[in-house]
Write a protein that binds this DNA or RNA. Sequence first.
DNA 1: GGGCAGAATGAACACGTTTTCACTTTTCGT
DNA 2: ACGAAAAGTGAAAACGTGTTCATTCTGCCC
Lengths: 346, 346
Amino acid sequence: MSDAEPAPRGRATAEMVAERAKVSRVAVSRAFNPHTSLKPEKRELILKIAQELNYTPDRAARALVSGRTHLVGMIVPDVCSHWESQEIDALTTALQNEGFATLLFKTRTDYSMDEQLLAYMRGFNPDSVIAFVENVKPKTLARFLDRAVPIYVHYPLAGQDDESAGQPLHDRLNVLQRDGIEQAVALLQGFGAKRIAYLSGAEKSRANGSRERTLRQVMAERGLEPPMVARGDFSYEAAYQATIDLFRVGQGADAIFAANDVGAFGVMDALRHELGLRVPEDVKVIGFDDIAQSHWKSYNLTTVKFDLDERVRALVRLILRRLNAPDAPGFQETLNTRLVVRGTVG
Amino acid sequence: MSDAEPAPRGRATAEMVAERAKVSRVAVSRAFNPHTSLKPEKRELILKIAQELNYTPDRAARALVSGRTHLVGMIVPDVCSHWESQEIDALTTALQNEGFATLLFKTRTDYSMDEQLLAYMRGFNPDSVIAFVENVKPKTLARFLDRAVPIYVHYPLAGQDDESAGQPLHDRLNVLQRDGIEQAVALLQGFGAKRIAYLSGAEKSRANGSRERTLRQVMAERGLEPPMVARGDFSYEAAYQATIDLFRVGQGADAIFAANDVGAFGVMDALRHELGLRVPEDVKVIGFDDIAQSHWKSYNLTTVKFDLDERVRALVRLILRRLNAPDAPGFQETLNTRLVVRGTVG
DNA sequence: GGGCAGAATGAACACGTTTTCACTTTTCGT
DNA sequence: ACGAAAAGTGAAAACGTGTTCATTCTGCCC
């Protein structure tokens, strides 16, 4: 490499590459856009010189003219929450392979709406948005995103699937929770559980609402009494305290269905280390998510799983399909759940 | 709100706002840049109309002319890793308050270098970069980031602090691990531990290398024999297996110092559920990080902590200082560590 | 060799902002 | 009330790219 003309301070521009390769600036632009027509040897030369100069087309300029930022916005209440961190991780990898980057935003942890944050995110002009904050109404989300079509994670109830059927405005990933929950209740019933309690997640979360209602429905169908409800918020600490209250103030239970795995951990630790009860002998526990920690030996949790890889692939499909057809009606993907049996039932 | 002129399809532009407010397009620009001079009532009118039209200055256009994207790149091997997810979470919140957004990239989990990823990230033109991949050489990092000055997390050894002293090219956060490790060793020694083992993290990680060497140094100074080393990679699974090997194949230990908290969990679960040993009666365990899970009752881990909030504040300071003085020499911040005593020692 | 299709090329424009630079208006001290 | 300083204003230039369009070049067939 002859360093006769070292790249000047700052970023190289298409102009400089063109000058050095003795071609027009347009040719440089074409060299980086595969579908354009340019003599192969010329393209090769340009790319070589571009590499020497450490040149890459400026994304800002490119975004300005093309209207595409190649950014995917994610709104998350808590990155540390295990389930979400796993999804962010897998999604980021998948999107990276498609030429996108993850743009991360944090909202309030109580799952409430935050219009200010939406406006803030809008400023960055993401091509697509995945809202982990499920209680934002689709139309509200759409109002804040002129160009990007948000992807909405939907938890339909049985018999309610077609509530807003037809062609929704937004793209949607439907997560069918019924199968997994049904398997869970059947298993508990099989082991003779009579008094089942539900440890809830954040009250404003749609995922929680849907889980609770589906559980009620399934239990009623199987002739079980409605579950007692201990109020949590998806966190370990709240679950821990709620479990203590359930047994000290309330009437206890012989099985607890937690809205998420981390909550189930809090339940188990409260049972074992605070109430002196054994799991699964005295109380059976089932979680929801199947996060990586659920197979750790201290917990070894039986839990309802939805396949993460499948979920990520579905989301990426939604994103790409939408970008190829900006004005098409809402796309949908569907995901099922199933029970993973480990050591906390019997 | 009179809907006489609803915003047309797509994004509103400064031009439209100007037209409606009967001012020049330049005035609109000024209305959004606080330090410029514009008659207050005029600014107020413009902002009001901007809100009606749902207008926000386009970041791409703004970046094109100002050279600032307000993006902070983060390179992470594993978002799920508890320590990193906590740092990402806190950093994102802090940066959001300063008008920045987090741009997330994933690299290989073995902490090895990935030039391709750096080039990819470079394309997005982040204003700053925080490298969690500690083994990338500063000069390599700098070569890939023309404009952004990377922030480097450094783990100096005692007596080696001034190895590259003076004015480093890159900004640096020094994490002094010695105090915490010293307190940990002193505590173990106080409880009569004789045969201390070290469960390592990923071999290519600088954090791990520094931890191991500092531990050796401290133990030598206190007249202890060098620690046995069990090879892990920061993961629960590797720690679990390495612990079993240490006791089944190797010679065992009466205390284990893990390179991170998650590793310590793997150690504890292997000891309790696979080897039938008690913690802390038979084997004492100490971790590193003080992640949120460390106070969960199943582990209740004694661990070396560096204050996350303090760390985040230091990083944000570094970022802002650099943006205000692009050509200044390297800035530095320093962070100390200390032991948090819980139930896994005695 | 002439005609012609298709590829290759470069000039000019568009994208939406910030910044600079003259110019005009207001404010303020005396 | 006068001048000077300060503040307010808009036209025009820049930022680095993609795209359109008219033009030139190449290779091919008869």
